[in-house]
């Protein structure tokens, strides 16, 4: 079974986010970029499925600017077999919306015919948590979101999902889209030899136009602003003082 894993190039999760002074967005110029952490978990899970003999080939896809090549090379170094870059923007500040990404991925699925798409549950830049569900909808496939456990047997997969208040287990008919949550696995680091090898793995370059998908955004960003700040309060010296303040001053106890 072929497994398709979409990966997104996003601001590195350790970088402090700065809103541009003109309110047009977040400053991404000369900022360290990395693979979306949830997508790393998806790549890792695909590799584990291959190691178990369930997956035969892992194809990674990235949609965005040309520099997303680096993200694809990271996935190849981890253990993916081949990569497809769909160039859909020239400015690093252009975020392709989940609906357009899902349409492009649906076209890739049409060409590649994977048995499973493993995706991160959300990207840590726009935090939309939508692409996997949208792709599944466009394909008319089954979906299992927020996976913390995945097992594939025959033509179905059993997925344990992180839901409010606990866990839910469902089975989905394959082919399916599964989106992954934090606790599914811990992604491996790529070794130096594998990083070198990844440079020789195939990376196909395409454009959104090749797939006939219109990536014009449906949403217009009116402005981007800093969240309202919160001021530091007072330090108290003891538990007694804390309880007294909470009772008398704040009135919350």
């Amino acid at each position: 079974m072929k497994v398709l894993v979409p990966v997104k190039r996003v601001i590195d999760y350790n970088v402090k986010v700065r809103v541009k002074a003109d309110g047009s967005g977040v400053d991404l110029a000369n900022v360290k970029m990395s693979m979306n952490p949830f997508d790393e978990i998806a790549v890792e899970e695909a590799i584990r499925l291959k190691e178990k003999g369930v997956a035969s080939e892992i194809v990674v896809v990235s949609i965005g600017v040309k520099q997303a090549q680096e993200t694809l090379r990271t996935a190849l170094a981890m253990g993916a077999d081949r990569a497809i870059l769909i160039e859909a923007a020239s400015d690093v500040h252009t975020d392709i919306e989940p609906l357009a990404v899902a349409k492009l991925l649906a076209a890739v699925v049409g060409a590649e015919a994977p048995g499973l798409v493993l995706a991160g549950k959300q990207a840590i830049d726009n935090d939309m948590n939508a692409t996997g569900q949208m792709l599944s909808a466009l394909l008319g496939w089954s979906q299992a979101t927020f996976a913390s456990e995945l097992s594939v047997a025959g033509d179905s997969a059993t997925v344990t999902r992180e839901v409010d208040g606990g866990l839910q287990t469902i089975t989905v008919k394959l082919p399916a889209v599964v989106t992954v949550d934090l606790r599914l696995n811990e992604p491996r680091y790529a070794s130096l030899p594998n990083i070198m090898k990844a440079k020789k793995k195939p990376l196909e370059e395409k454009t959104a136009a090749d797939y006939g998908v219109d990536v014009t955004p449906r949403l217009t960003v009116v402005k981007t602003s800093e969240p309202a700040g919160r001021k530091a309060g007072v330090k108290v010296a003891s538990v007694d003082e804390l309880i007294a303040k909470l009772k008398d001053e704040a009135g919350v106890l």
Binding site: V17, V26, L219, V222, K223, T224, P227
Partner: peptide, 10 residues
Amino acid sequence: IYAGNAIQTV
């Protein structure tokens, strides 16, 4: 967006 580090009006 960005884990609450920015607020977007769309």
